[in-house]
Structures are given as structure tokens and as C-alpha cells.
């Protein structure tokens, strides 16, 4: 097995009754890579991501995450990944510090470690003064950045981001992506879904799902060349128009 590959998927499939949400997808993700996982609504992105993050059992096919098997080593996978969902994932009625302490606590971090790193994160986000404020009172962009910091607090090998920048202004999105780059530089693999095609350009490699299959997978540059398009937006539209499945 190639040590450099942190995620491998082979003919990974998920069926719900007669409906095949994910239809035999295969791909590898390398360590420290920012892997963009694109697709129209209902194409099967979230289902695929849920299988990889141990939230849902595949129907068939093979996959390993952080070197662990998705069927048998579920718990080990959970220990080694971070997850941030499209719905906002911090507790609004808890303070910033209480949120950090809670999430670090359920990953089994020691109090000493939590204390030191909390200070570091707040400083890094320029939020030292907000530590004891309720998350509810923060602007959305800050919340998202904080949620990302919390998702990688325990230094996971991989972080799964499910549409992390939905509803965020362009400036904050730019800052958010700086954080993603920084995480990748520190060796954290980033697996991200998005609907913003400019964000797709930031990814090292991009896969595009259509009707449960991966129809294209390459660097943004190569994809644009193959599809003879000037932007990722065009690439995406060319592929997504082929979809027969009705988005929900």
C-alpha cells in the first residue's frame, strides 16, 4: 500500500433501496493535498463523504481512510479525521472557549494541551477578546473560521469540509481558504465540497460527480484543457448538464 495515499476508494457504492446514490466511485487522495469534491445538488457528494468519514456504511466496494478500512476500523478512522458540516457546527449558546474545550474533550485531549492550544488559536484568529463571548454573538465568518479551527484542533490526518463557506462574504472566504492552505502545509489532507467554482480553482485536484459517478478528476488546469474551457465554471456546467437525475 502506498503510504502517501491517505484516502483510497475502489468501486465504492451506496444504495438506498433501489436508488443508487453513489455508483462505484474510485479515487485516491494524497497526503497534504487539497482535494475538491464537486457536483450538483443530489449528485451524491454528501453520501460519499459520509461513507469516508465513518457516518454511513458502504453497500459495496473498498475504501481506506488514514490507512484504516471503512468497514472494520470505523472507530480508528473517527480518531484520525476532523469533520465540518454544511450546517453550522458550533454550539451557539456556549462561549468560544467552552466550544473548544468540549470538542477537544470528546477527542480525549488533555486539559494542559487544550489550554495551550486554545490560547494559540484565539491569538491566531485575532479573537482573544471574544474567548468568553457566546458563539451566537459572533459574525458568521468568524464562526466558520472558528469551526474550522475546532475541526482540526486534534491534528487529524484528514479534515472533511462539507460546503464550509456557504453564505460567507468573499473577503472571509479568501481568509478561510488561507487557513485551508496553512492546514495543508502542516500536512493535513483537506477533502472539501463546494459550490463556488472560484474555490475549485484553489484546489490541487478536483473531482466532479454526476449522477453518483465521478465523471472527471484532475488538476483544475488539466480539466480546463480537456474540456476546452476557460474556467472551472464552464467545466462544471458542461459536465453537470449531462445529469439525468433530478436534484432535490
Amino acid at each position: 500500500m502506498n503510504k502517501d495515499k491517505v484516502i483510497t476508494a475502489e468501486a465504492l457504492t451506496k444504495r438506498f433501496g433501489s436508488f443508487t446514490a453513489v455508483n462505484g466511485i474510485s479515487f485516491d487522495v494524497h497526503k497534504g493535498e487539497i482535494f475538491g469534491f464537486l457536483g450538483a445538488n443530489g449528485a451524491g457528494k454528501t453520501t460519499a463523504m459520509r461513507m469516508l468519514s465513518g457516518l454511513s456504511m458502504p453497500t459495496s466496494g473498498k475504501a481506506t481512510v488514514a490507512g484504516y478500512d471503512v468497514y472494520k476500523e470505523n472507530e480508528k478512522i473517527k480518531q484520525n479525521i476532523g469533520y465540518m458540516s454544511q450546517k453550522f457546527s458550533l454550539y451557539e449558546d456556549l462561549t468560544v472557549k467552552e466550544n473548544i474545550r468540549f470538542y477537544a474533550g470528546i477527542y480525549g485531549m488533555t486539559n494542559q494541551f487544550i489550554k495551550e492550544k486554545t490560547g494559540f488559536i484565539l491569538q491566531h484568529l485575532h479573537m482573544e477578546k471574544e474567548g468568553d463571548k457566546l458563539v451566537r454573538s459572533l459574525p458568521l465568518g468568524w464562526k466558520q473560521k472558528l469551526a474550522f479551527s475546532v475541526a482540526i484542533f486534534h491534528d487529524p490526518q484528514i479534515v472533511f469540509l462539507d460546503e464550509p463557506t456557504g453564505g460567507v462574504d468573499p473577503v472571509t472566504r479568501r481568509e478561510f481558504w488561507n487557513m485551508i492552505y496553512q492546514a495543508a502545509e502542516n500536512g493535513i489532507t483537506v477533502f472539501v465540497t463546494t459550490h463556488y467554482m472560484d474555490e475549485a480553482e484553489y484546489c490541487h485536484r478536483v473531482s466532479i460527480m454526476v449522477d453518483g459517478r465521478i465523471d472527471a478528476l484532475d488538476t483544475p488546469k488539466e480539466l480546463k484543457r480537456t474540456f476546452n474551457a476557460s474556467s472551472m465554471d464552464e467545466v462544471f456546467l458542461k459536465l453537470a448538464r449531462k445529469a439525468t437525475r433530478v436534484a432535490d
Binding site: 473517527k78 479525521i81 458540516s85 450546517k87 453550522f88 457546527s89 470538542y103 470528546i106 477527542y107 472533511f160
Partner: peptide
Amino acid sequence: MGTMEILLASP
């Protein structure tokens, strides 16, 4: 609130 997903994805 969507926090359940995060909890289930945690150990």
C-alpha cells in the same frame, strides 16, 4: 443544529 453529525463523526 447539525452538531449531531459532528458528534457521530467524532470518536
